[in-house]
Amino acid sequence: MAAQQGCQTGAYVVVGFTLKDQNVTKQTHGDLWYSPACRAMWGDFNVPELMYPITGQLWTQPEYGGVNRLAASTTLVDTGNWTTPMVDWQQSVKFCGSHKGGIDPDMDLPSQGYNACTAWR
């Protein structure tokens, strides 16, 4: 999507996370991307191996603060990649991977490394 919209050029990973699941050898990884050209951010979720369904979530906050908004979420039941829709860069953005469905892992107690988020950016 980012490529189709011309955002890919110059885009870079701002920050990422890796889940720690003892049931798999290849860990799920997520990256938070930023395109200066498009002033947009998005998440890229790579699930090379999984034992249980796993959810990727893109969260945002208003630029000068407020309550979290779930901008995008999907649950993968098979291996693969998922790229979130793009969101406005101007707000605070973070990207999460979780075994906990729609619950923001930051708002819950992290459990055994199955849940992780990037820092807010």
Partner: peptide, 22 residues
Amino acid sequence: KFTIRRGLPAGGSTAPYAEVDL
């Protein structure tokens, strides 16, 4: 960009309160 995040954890249930003294 300049952003503000409010509350602990940021954006959670305490976020609305943190605006009061901002």
